[in-house]
């Protein structure tokens, strides 16, 4: 029977939420093409994360130890391929996060597999939908190789549900290849706010903020929201890189997305069009962002955001 291998993503013993969306995509693939799903978790803390994932799947493999401590593409792709060979995987599925994007093609190359990246939908056992030209077109692609690698846009798939009976974790012994890459440091952007891709509300600011994110942050705080930004803001160094929403940044689909001082370039829309409710606050009534907004307010954000923050407070 065909086996679909899910490559989980985790940090320090905690599973990343995007993995559960990738699992849903794997389940849809199993429904359409037949087969069972197994998973592998790689890196420091893998055994613990594997335990968490075993609530969803009968068999989860864990690869831990020396060479896998840091998420180096060379070693992690090698471990994923070892796991794929061991379970006889016909499909390898993972989330299209920075980690997934880094390793998926290397896994594909090792398995002589075609790679469909950042998919939006599973059409059939070998056809997938994906966005091209900044979301100006949706393509159906067909992977023609016997083994397929698929990376999944997490916002397009709901998180998988726990199964009734918890599964088993198996340690998988893999010798890490000597990598040509060495981890030096990680400059983490620490934030007490929810993670951008996981938050149910996102408040984003653009060049219209002129770099002053205080009104954005104040509103985010009362809404328990994540903060996002347009490319203009990140390029100027006003906010960290990983807050960029868009075609070439993060894709978000919260239940509420508030864009303030953002014009609504196609590259930005590509990252937030899937949000349930979109609010735009812009002082230019002609700004393209209003074309996708459910509620548009033509106003100065420095006046409107503090008012909005106060009104929301009153509701609570």
């Amino acid at each position: 029977m065909a086996t679909i291998l899910l490559i989980a993503e985790q940090a320090h013993g905690h599973l990343k939420k995007a993995t559960l969306s990738a699992l849903t995509a794997a389940q849809q693939l199993a429904q359409k093409g037949g087969g069972q799903i197994q998973a592998v978790v790689i890196g420091a803390g893998a055994a613990q994360s594997a335990q968490e994932l075993a609530a969803y799947l009968p068999t989860v493999h864990a690869v831990e130890g020396g060479g896998f401590e840091h998420a180096l593409a060379e070693t992690h792709a090698a471990a994923a391929v070892e796991a794929a060979k061991k379970v006889g995987a016909t499909d390898v599925v993972l989330a299209a996060t920075a980690y997934g994007k880094d390793i998926a093609p290397r896994i594909a190359a090792k398995l002589a597999a075609g790679v469909a990246s950042d998919i939006l939908a599973v059409v059939s056992a070998n056809q997938f939908k994906r966005a091209m030209w900044a979301g100006n077109a949706i393509a159906t692609v067909e992977v023609t190789t016997p083994v397929k690698v698929v990376s999944v846009r997490a916002t397009e798939f709901p998180a998988a549900q726990k199964s009734g009976s918890p599964g088993a974790v198996q340690q998988l012994g893999v010798t890490a290849p000597a990598p040509k890459t060495k981890f030096i440091e990680f400059n983490e952007v620490k934030s007490a706010r929810p993670e951008l891709t996981e938050a149910s509300v996102v408040v984003s600011g653009g060049r219209g903020t002129k770099g002053d994110f205080k009104p954005i942050e104040a509103l985010a705080d009362v809404l328990n929201a994540a903060v996002g930004a347009s490319r203009a803001v990140v390029d100027a160094g006003w906010q960290p890189n990983d807050l960029q929403v868009g075609q070439t940044g993060k894709v978000v689909a919260p239940k509420l997305y508030i864009a303030a001082g953002i014009s609504g370039a196609i590259q930005h829309l590509a990252g937030m069009k899937g949000s349930k409710t979109i609010v735009a606050i812009n002082k230019d009534a002609e700004a393209p962002i209003f074309q996708v907004a459910d509620y548009g307010l033509v106003a100065d954000l420095f006046k409107a955001l503090p008012e909005l923050t106060e009104e929301v407070k009153k509701l609570k």
Partner: peptide, 12 residues
């Protein structure tokens, strides 16, 4: 640029 910050790698 990775999720959550900037990572520095040294590549041969």
């Amino acid at each position: 640029e990775v999720d959550g910050g900037l990572e520095v790698l040294e590549v041969q």
